[in-house]
Design a protein around this nucleic acid. Structure first.
Length: 466
RNA sequence: GGCGGCAUAGCCAAGUGGCAAGGCAGAGGACUGCAACUCCUUUAUCACCGGUUCGAAUCCGGUUGCCGCCUCCA
């Protein structure tokens, strides 16, 4: 069995074949760090983290690179507005990004390159493009000669002449052609800048990714990923730069995630209808946000609302309950042999069906439906009069493994310990024995007010927070 | 104007040629002292109109509606 990926470049699903056996070289376009990220920015972080986790689950080593754009127009603007230096702002929001995305279960990348730390490589890259005739300098700026790259438009599948009709020609244009894009921008007075053969300035937006992907992963990488809107022009330009420079294919598989909408409208900083991940993870269990995001195929749009988040939460509770049911039952189970084998086979069958769904272009929506199948199966087994410890353990492990692949943390506190709660439960049990149900209910209500939910099972009472 | 996507039950969402997954919400039942958890039962002429086919949500043509990219954007 093999993993299939929908490749934007070919507009079809293709079997994944790594350049190097057992390795995946993956570059994801990261945030421009001038503000907190909104939940739209959180989607690619979560989606591609899940892709990475799945590759790892399937035995690949993933060299995961996610860059930070720590100098550009928006950062300079923010610096002016806040009266701070660009690096201070960048540092602050890189930390915030890591914190927010970390709360959402996203693993740290293997490399987190920053533009400002790769300035030499960027300048060398641009210089080399000029030598090859793919770029030219005018009045301190350097532009890429777009029409010289024959395959321009192959990712977005736009005929080059149609692009021109839509492109904006700015006043005081220094470009040879409106399609040309900036590799290097001359610094205005007081702007943060670096020395270069073309005077002081800073890199254009696209060049950083070409340079850093090459530096950390090589001339050709396996997977390049990002939001749908980056397809054009960002990724198209990256291809042009990298392939002109390296004279080989840049990325083999291009993956793009769909948008998050608010009230069916695109969420964006410019429209002002965005929800900051920073705020959201404080209001809701970040696990639920992640579960919600993964409940839809990554290429499709998601509509976001508090109601939908609640609905996802109820769903995830079901899976978590099944896990707790199994864990709890394990305490009172014994070893049996009669139907053990078929249940063990059942757990393996369920694991395989999860793999099958994820193999199909990381279909997390279907993978989650397998999680629900597992929950049902586990609940049915757990309710039998006699249960086998190994089977229960197999279900628990299965749920831990597969929720882990999705970056979800199911492993709640194993042994809840609280003497005061235990004392109340004991008291309630006595009251129940005495058929003093008024007192028993009173005790249960008291606990509930403290955020502790009691559940009576055939194996005795248990409790959980929430 | 160019390129592309979407339309499936009250809501969310898979499925892309062979009897329409799953979840949430609702209804009924089992379990329970009552609950909770759980289990069982239950809800769809797949936007519309044509066509291809033994067979279409799925392929083709058209219509309508919504959305995105072409300009900073995940």
């Amino acid at each position: 069995m093999s993993i299939k990926i929908y490749n934007t470049l070919t507009r079809q699903k293709e079997t994944f074949e790594p350049l190097e056996e057992g390795k995946v070289k993956m570059y994801v376009c990261g945030p421009t760090v001038y503000n907190y990220i909104h939940i739209g920015n959180a989607r690619p972080a979560i989606v591609f983290d899940t892709v990475r986790r799945y590759f790892e689950y399937r035995g690949y080593e993933v060299i995961y690179v996610l860059n930070f754009t720590d100098v550009d127009d928006k950062l300079i603007k923010a610096a002016n507005e806040l009266g701070e230096e660009v690096p201070a702002i960048a540092d602050r929001f890189i930390e915030a990004y890591k914190e927010d995305v970390g709360a959402l279960g996203v693993k740290e990348a293997v490399h987190h390159p920053r533009v400002t730390e790769n300035m030499d490589e960027i300048i060398t890259f641009i210089d080399s493009l000029i030598s090859k005739g793919y770029a030219y300098e005018t009045e301190g700026d350097v532009y890429f000669r777009t029409r010289k790259f024959d395959e321009y438009g192959k990712l977005s599948q736009q005929p080059i002449d149609e692009l021109q009709s839509g492109s904006r020609i700015e006043v005081g244009e220094k470009k040879e052609d409106p399609l040309d894009f900036a590799l290097w921008k001359e610094a205005k007075d007081g702007e943060i800048s670096w020395e270069s053969p073309w005077g002081t300035g800073r890199p254009g937006w696209h060049i950083e990714c070409s340079t850093m992907a090459k530096k950390y992963l090589g001339d050709t990488i396996d997977i390049h990923a990002g939001g749908q809107d980056l397809t054009f022009p960002h990724h198209e330009n990256e291809i042009a730069q990298s392939e002109a420079h390296n004279e080989t294919d840049f990325a083999r598989y291009w993956m793009h995630n769909g948008y998050i909408n608010i009230e069916n409208e695109k969420m964006s900083k410019s429209l002002g209808n965005f929800v900051l991940a920073h705020d959201l993870v404080k209001k809701h269990d970040p696990q639920m946000i992640r579960f919600f995001m993964l409940s839809v195929q990554y290429r499709h749009p998601i509509n976001f609302s508090a109601e939908l988040l609640e609905s996802a939460k109820s769903g995830f509770e079901r899976i978590r309950n099944a896990y707790e049911n199994v864990k709890h039952r394990k305490k009172t189970s014994m070893s049996l042999t009669n139907d053990k084998d078929e249940w063990m086979e059942e757990t393996e069958r369920l694991r395989q069906s999860f793999i099958k769904e994820m193999d199909d272009d990381f279909n997390t929506a279907n993978a989650i439906s397998v999680l629900f199948d597992i929950a049902k199966s586990a609940n049915l087994y757990q309710q039998k009069e006699q249960t086998d410890e190994e089977v229960l353990e197999a279900y628990a492990t299965l749920l831990e493994d597969l929720t882990g692949v999705l970056g979800l943390e199911i492993d709640a506190a194993d042994e809840l310990q609280d003497e005061e709660v235990d004392a109340k439960i004991q008291e309630r049990e006595q009251a129940r024995k005495d058929r003093n149900f008024a007192r028993a209910d009173q005790l249960r209500d008291e606990l509930k007010e403290r955020g502790i939910a009691l559940e009576d099972t055939p194996q005795g009472p248990r409790w959980k927070r929430g």
